[in-house]
Design a protein around this nucleic acid. Structure first.
Length: 969
DNA sequence: TTCCCGACCCTTTTT
DNA sequence: GGGTCGGGAA
């Protein structure tokens, strides 16, 4: 047993798993085997300390972490034992205690859970009603903060001095009153009330022998209290955490809880895990460089166990859409260049905010790359799903006036917003629920003050009928429980829901209906008596002598259980059906939701001030940790990127965390060139079989270019295909990487992957180079630019007639032909290609390859231009092109020297912009991208899966597309 | 006068 | 997806 349990663990991990300490802290940096250690310890406690699994509580913060933990523990101890563990999020475990022992603290049996939309709606209504000026969202957060601090509304009111505080106190008080009247608990209440229960009735947890907590750095004070309460009998506690990964400060997480714990239990034993098994050395170095910017942070060691690998990439792009297009092209390029070693499932896009996903999703859709979204809108929060859930909630608990308000006029029943608001207000002032006012109105028992037209009255009657019919169904089933799924079908039928969706969403209807089908499938599962029994058993807490328990049995209970589970569900889509093999999907996720996960290739787009760090964040250190968490998700390849214009077309500034001195040295400016050797190294790192060369070559033929060379490194727009070939339109071209760097630069860029895997240490660029060296570099760039110009002119002569963009694309299709016919040995060709790339102005390598040998660019005599005097306006040639927008950064009232640009670059720009030679002024006509009809975007899940349950990959309407594309006008 | 619907704006992170 | 505004229908 020991052998199995401890197999593959390192010394520190073993110590942690087998530690005899009662209170144990395991400090585990990213990729150090945190979950592995925690799960092994659970198994160890059962196997070697003879603890009963049902006496062990394991707490996580997210549902996803809970299910992963369960899976891993099952691997150790088997499903039977794993099921008996009390494992879940803090909220779900609290809910179990409240459901079973809530009556001891006067909690009604059928309390519902107020989700965020309920809470927000309540707050909003109170604010409006009192004509206050505070922001609803902020007030809602503030209530949560107060609750997390354990300050109730009365306490707050008594200490409220300022008018503003008193206003908030009013909102807080009425919010609490509304929850109580609606028989609802919000998320914070679940924890608070559970704490209250366990304090009052400690015998509820008298059976608990051990408590284990994951991601402890994210606990807030209530959760800390709960920890102490859960463990109050035996005080056996294991926590794992990492202060560097604390990213829930906004939820009042207290990193201090680590030291608080040591004070409370002075015998606390601490074990540090220090070896990283996830990321390549180069990625780890870069991430360390970022996190170390926090000077208040104690220095820590984190050892890489992998070879340095490929250096991470920091890429500049013109716009959010450009960034998305580039990202997709890199996904495709890397996939092809590795000959299928990497599949879509190996890529993840991690975002600061979920809203950023839209542009990326539409680019992925366009390229038909399958993806799934974690975080952002939860399945149960999708309009159509939420609506049905709200109907069920009202059927279960009509006192929930917020839910009534949301559904009373959906589908439209001529009950307008004004009427509903007014009725709601009237109900509130009468001290009744909205539902009972509506019911009495419809049944003629009362005549509301609010004006109700005939049409509206009719509409209300229809609504009341739906609810009453369904409630009757539930009640009638007391003797013979009906399945939840029947109830749901009744609702759908009564609403003619399918027809409603068809009308409302037109061409998007299918995806919406698929979501409903998924919901039905879930209800079917929940209705299965077998499953239900199993679930009840799993949820049940051990019987305690002399303490009465409530147990669920009827349809009513089934309904409220189902609703509770939807309220606490993960904000993620379920795993796609795995039929035989894994369905390959790229993952889009918020960084928060990605914690604890890993992928071979990770993209973090939108790395600019305002997004990361977010403009609304008040703790920059936390934002930095967020970047750190994101970066450390990557195993082999990490891309950070930044559009130089945001979605509002304003100029952006590269993230503060990335413009610190020395940071750029850890990054490449463009995606890696990938050699066969590199693929081998990658395969080794990921412990996968290396694909055959033929497979790689085959895959390469399908992509447009095999280098990340289309988007200029300085973040400007690439020259459109048409402009490239239309020689009449001026010759100055914007540089892509292969064209502005001297050949030597290109070589060094191309070599990274080989170098990374074959040598012991990654080469790190010097942080600064001397001004002199810099000047040399500038001169070299200038020469190149002139050469480019020459080459262009030569080409004009060689290749007289202009070509259209379309034809050029056709040309790209024949790369394969070129390969087949080529007569030169590969190495010679490579050298030639290098030159060609270095000297052709904009043509990507593939195009150059397509040219007949005699028209390929030739070496030309460079003409030296003095760059202290001349600078092309639109071709930013201050050395590395991407240094243009951020030469200097003002911080702490002094200027910080960035990106290793020489100071004269700044003055240069101002003084000499008028002396630009006209031939270097670029004028590019960009053609609009064609808009595809919305219908082509709908299914985002791979077609081959053919799942029984429909997939629900479509997240939302893709506004931009469906508005313009699909509709007739 | 009230309601409905399309068009257009902006969007922190989670239970 | 939510909020708001304005045109057109009831």
């Amino acid at each position: 047993m020991d052998g199995d349990l401890l197999h593959g663990l390192n010394g520190a991990q073993c110590d942690a798993v087998t530690s005899q300490a009662a209170v144990l802290q395991v400090l585990a940096p990213p990729g150090s085997g945190k979950t592995k250690t925690l799960t092994a310890r659970v198994a160890y406690l059962i196997a070697h300390q003879q603890l009963k699994p049902w006496n062990i509580i394991v707490c996580t913060f997210t549902v996803k972490a809970a299910s992963e933990m369960k899976e891993r523990i099952t691997g150790f101890v088997g499903a039977e034992v794993a099921k008996q563990l009390k494992l879940g999020t803090f909220h779900s475990i609290s809910l179990r205690y409240l459901k079973q022992y809530g009556q001891h603290i006067g909690l009604d049996k059928d309390f519902g859970i107020a989700d965020s939309s309920d809470s927000k709606a309540i707050v909003k209504r109170i604010i409006k009603q009192h004509d206050l000026t505070i922001d609803a969202g902020q007030a809602r957060n503030r209530i949560s903060t107060q609750k997390a601090k354990g300050i109730d509304s009365e306490q707050f009111l008594s200490s409220a001095k300022k008018i503003e505080q008193q206003e908030f106190a009013t909102v807080y008080r009425e919010y609490e009153a509304t929850l109580k009247a609606s028989n609802l608990l919000d998320y914070d209440d679940l924890l608070l009330r559970c704490g209250f229960l366990l304090r009052k009735h400690p015998q509820c947890v008298s059976n608990v022998e051990a408590l284990l907590i994951d991601e402890f750095q994210d606990t807030n004070n209530i959760q800390y209290d709960l920890m102490a309460l859960f463990a109050q009998r035996q005080n056996v506690i294991t926590i794992v955490g990492d202060p560097d990964q604390s990213i829930y400060g906004f939820r009042c997480a207290e990193i201090k809880n680590l030291s608080r714990m040591k004070q409370q239990w002075p015998d606390t034993f601490t074990i540090n895990l220090e070896e990283n098994y996830r990321s390549s050395g180069a990625i780890l170095n870069a991430a360390q460089r970022i996190i170390e910017q926090d000077e208040s942070r104690p220095p820590k060691s984190l050892q890489a166990t992998h070879s340095p690998g490929m250096r991470p990439i920091l890429r500049k792009l013109p716009s959010a859409t450009g960034e998305a297009r580039w990202l997709v092209s890199e996904v495709q390029r890397i996939q092809a260049m590795t000959g299928g070693l990497l599949q879509p499932g190996d890529f993840a896009v991690l975002l600061r905010s979920a809203a950023l996903s839209r542009t990326i999703e539409s680019a992925l859709n366009k390229a038909e790359v399958p993806y799934r979204m974690i975080g952002g809108t939860r399945f149960y929060d999708r309009a159509e799903v939420k609506l049905i859930i709200d109907y069920l909630r009202v059927i279960n608990n009509p006192a929930n006036s917020e839910a009534v308000e949301r559904i009373v006029n959906v589908p439209a029943r001529r009950v307008g917003e004004g009427t509903v608001k007014s009725l709601h207000e009237e109900a509130r002032s009468e001290g009744v629920s909205l539902w009972s006012l509506v019911l009495d109105t419809v049944q003629g028992r009362c005549k509301p003050k609010t004006k109700v037209t005939d049409a509206t009255h009719k509409g209300l009657a229809v609504f009341v009928n739906v609810i009453l019919t369904c409630q009757r169904k539930v009640l009638d089933s007391k003797t013979e429980p009906i399945a939840l799924v029947d109830l749901m079908n009744t609702v759908l039928k009564k609403l003619c829901f399918e027809a409603y969706l068809k009308k409302k969403y037109a061409e998007e209807y299918e995806a919406r209906w698929a979501n409903i089908e998924e919901l039905i499938a879930q209800a079917t599962e929940a209705s299965d008596p077998e499953r239900l029994r199993a679930m009840l058993q799993e949820d049940a807490l051990p019987a305690i002598d002399g303490l009465e328990q409530r147990t669920a049995s009827s349809t009513e209970d089934m309904l409220s259980m189902f609703l509770a589970s939807t309220a606490l569900a993960a904000s993620s889509e379920e795993k796609p059906e795995e039929e035989g093999r894994k369905v390959q999907q790229l993952t889009i996720s918020t960084i928060h939701a990605a914690k604890g996960l890993e992928w071979p290739v990770v993209f973090i787009p939108a790395c600019y001030d305002g997004s990361l760090p977010h403009s609304r964040a008040d703790d920059n250190d936390e934002e930095r940790r967020l970047l750190y968490v994101g970066m450390t998700r990557a195993q082999a390849l990490l891309y950070l990127s930044c559009p130089i214009k945001n979605t509002q077309r304003e100029e952006t500034t590269l993230s503060t965390f990335l413009i610190q001195p020395g940071v750029t040295g850890f990054f490449e400016e463009h995606g890696p060139s990938i050699t066969l050797h590199g693929v081998t190294g990658l395969a080794t790192t990921l412990r996968r079989d290396c694909p055959q060369k033929a497979t790689i070559d085959e895959a390469k033929r399908k992509i447009e270019r095999d280098e990340d060379s289309y988007w200029p490194l300085n973040g400007e727009e690439p020259v459109e295909e048409v402009a490239k070939w239309d020689h009449g339109k001026g010759s100055g071209m914007l540089p892509a990487f292969g064209t502005t760097r001297p050949a030597a630069g290109f070589t060094s860029a191309a070599v990274t992957m080989q170098q990374g895997f074959s040598t012991a240490s990654a080469t790190i660029k010097p942080e600064f180079i001397s001004a002199n060296a810099r000047f040399e570099e500038l001169r070299e760039q200038a020469q190149l630019k002139k050469v480019d110009h020459r080459v262009q002119q030569t080409n004009n002569k060689l290749d007289g007639k202009p070509k259209g963009g379309k034809r050029q694309i056709e040309g790209q299709g024949s790369i394969a032909g070129f390969f087949a016919k080529r007569s030169k040995p590969e190495q010679v060709l490579e050298a030639h290609e290098r030159d060609a790339v270095a000297f052709s102005s904009v043509r990507p390598l593939q195009e150059v390859r397509n040219l007949p040998a005699e028209s390929r660019p030739k070496m030309a005599e460079p003409r030296i231009m003095d760059f202290t005097k001349h600078k092309p306006r639109n071709a930013p040639l201050h050395g590395k092109p991407n240094t243009v927008t951020h030469h200097m950064h003002k911080a702490d009232n002094r200027y910080v020297f960035l990106d290793s640009s020489p100071p004269q670059a700044e003055t240069d720009e101002n003084q000499t912009s008028d002396t630009v030679p006209t031939s270097d002024v670029v004028e590019v006509e960009t053609s609009q991208t064609k808009v595809r009809p919305a219908s082509t975007f709908h299914t985002t899940t791979v077609q081959t899966a053919a799942p029984q349950r429909k997939t629900y990959g479509v997240r939302r309407s893709m506004n931009g597309w469906s508005n313009r594309g699909g509709k007739t006008r």
